[in-house]
Structure formats: C-alpha cells, structure tokens
Design a protein around this nucleic acid. Structure first.
Lengths: 144, 144
DNA sequence: ATTGAAATTGATAAGCCGTATCAAGATGAT
DNA sequence: ATCATCTTGATACGGCTTATCAATTTCAAT
C-alpha cells in the first residue's frame, strides 16, 4: 500500500483495535483499492482485484466493505438492485441530470442546493453524511 | 373504483393504449389501492389486498407496480433490501431524509430546492419530468 | 353477441445479491 | 515460538424480484 491514504489506514487500525479485530493482507489490499474509487460495488471490486489476487473471495470483499462502513470510511447505498459503497472520505460530490430519452447523464454541482439540504436536515435534527439527487427528464434533442 | 383518481386512471389508460396493453380488473384494483398510499412495497400491497382478493398473485403486483412506473404514476426506490414504490401523484412530490442508523424516513418538501433544480435543468436545456432527492444521515437519537 | 388473436394472470421456478456457515489458515499478544 | 482468537475462501442458504408457461381474459373485428 502506498503511503497515500495514511489517514484512512490509521482510522481503520483504530477501529480494529477497539473491536479486537485484526489487520490482514486482504483488508489492506481492499482498503487501498477502495480509496481510489468514489463509489464501487462489491462485485466490481471483486473483478478488479481478481487480476492481481485471483483467490480473494467475494465474501471477503462484502465483509470488508461492511467493515469499512462500521469504521466510518464507507457508506452503503442501494442503487438499482445492487449496493454501492461510497467512499465518504472522497471530496467533490456531484449530482446527476439524466435524460430518459437518450440516457445521457450530465453531472452538476450546486452549492445553494447543498446548503438548503443542510438546512432541511438541521431542521429535522439530522446529520447528513451523504445524499443523492437525480433529475430525470428530456434533453433538448430528445424533447423534439 | 371510486370516481376519485379519475385523472390517474386516464393517464394509465393512455399509457395502455399507446403500448397495446389491456385494462384488467387487477390493474384497476391495484391502481386504486396504490393511489391511497404515499409509498408502499409490493409485499405490503399483497397482504393488504389479500383480504379482499385472495387469489391476486404477488407477481401481478410487481408487474403492475412496474407498469405504473412506466406510465409515470409511480417511482421505484430501493431501500434496505426492498423496493418502495412511491406515488408521485400524491399531493406534489416529496423528498426523503433517511436515517442510516434506525431506517427512519422523514418526508419533506422544499420549494426553494425545487426551484433551483429547475434552474439547473434549464441551464442544461433539460425539461424535468421527475426527480429524486434523498439525504442520508443520522437522526438525533442515532447520532449518540 | 361471438370470435379469435394477443395480452394477462397466477403459481412457481429460477436468478440475483448479500449473508451465514465452517474447516483451514493467519494474526498477534504473551 | 506458542496458541487462543480472528479471518479467510468456498459454498450453502435466504430474501426479494423476475421469468416461465398454461389457462384465462380482454378487446377489436366481425
């Protein structure tokens, strides 16, 4: 593992220590791969890691990603029929504008909306860890 | 079926007509039940309707709720291990604040956010038909 | 009203995703 | 280095949703 992601490694070790869990080669490997992504599914990571480590089991990936959730490094989010594990240490969230005609996806960010989301959350005494905003519609070409 | 929900019935018939689909007793029944809810799972509707119609199959409910999604009356949302079908005709769209600790869902509406969404869309020359906004986090109880 | 092609239904098998199980192996406190 | 404990990998299992298919229903054309 590169000496980037030192902070996250430290956070993981702290969690492991607190819960009498052990640091394994697999956990290091999966953490390293996970931190390079903004979000990933267990299956996708399985295939990705299979190249360098063909014997890494899918169950181990699921277990480890769930461990990262417990450790506060990841957050599970259900999307389609699968679970996306979001890297919550990753900055720069973006939202999506999706054309239901041609499936084109435009990414955008809007600070004002983010601010209002925080406002809604605090009004309800929630602490937001992540969010998802998707606007569905037709792009100019598909409207005609 | 009561003569409330006439508009939605009309929208469904229009969709059916366009796609060479047929209006059945089951579809009417399920539409009627669906429109009384803000959101519901297929399983929940199955049990609810079993009382008045014990032979209505679960597969039919899934198929019909997916049909409603195609017809623009419903929107599927994956939550936990199940799919929630949201009634998007229900007194305006509402968004969700979801506690990842206890699974509690708080619904909210925010005109200002909706307005900003329109703004983002028009900036990208999109016409929005629907949207989805989910804020994930911890409620006050689960934060501790 | 009857007919008949096409769609729909209900029952259930199958599929997919994620978790549980468990023997074999790895870890780390002593 | 030892050894209790945790972890892994392979796979069985379970929950949710979709696919399959024979029987039934719908609806447009008689």
């Amino acid at each position: 593992m590169a000496n980037t992601h030192v902070k996250e490694m430290k956070a993981l070790k702290e969690h492991l220590g607190k819960h009498q869990l052990k640091l394994t080669r697999q956990r290091e490997l999966i953490l390293s791969a996970f931190l390079r992504q903004e979000h990933i599914t267990a299956e996708a990571m399985y295939h990705q890691l299979a190249k360098s480590d063909p014997h890494l089991g899918l169950a181990t990936i699921y277990r480890t990603l769930n461990l990262f959730c417990d450790a506060g490094l990841a957050q599970a989010r259900h999307f389609g029929s699968q679970t996306q594990y979001d890297n919550i240490t990753h900055k720069g969230h973006h939202d999506h504008l999706i054309c239901t005609g041609c499936q084109k996806i435009v990414e955008f960010e809007n600070e004002e909306i983010e601010r209002l989301q925080e406002e809604v959350a605090s009004k309800n005494k929630f602490t937001i860890t992540t969010h998802r905003l998707e606007l569905y519609g037709l792009c100019s070409r598909c409207r005609h």
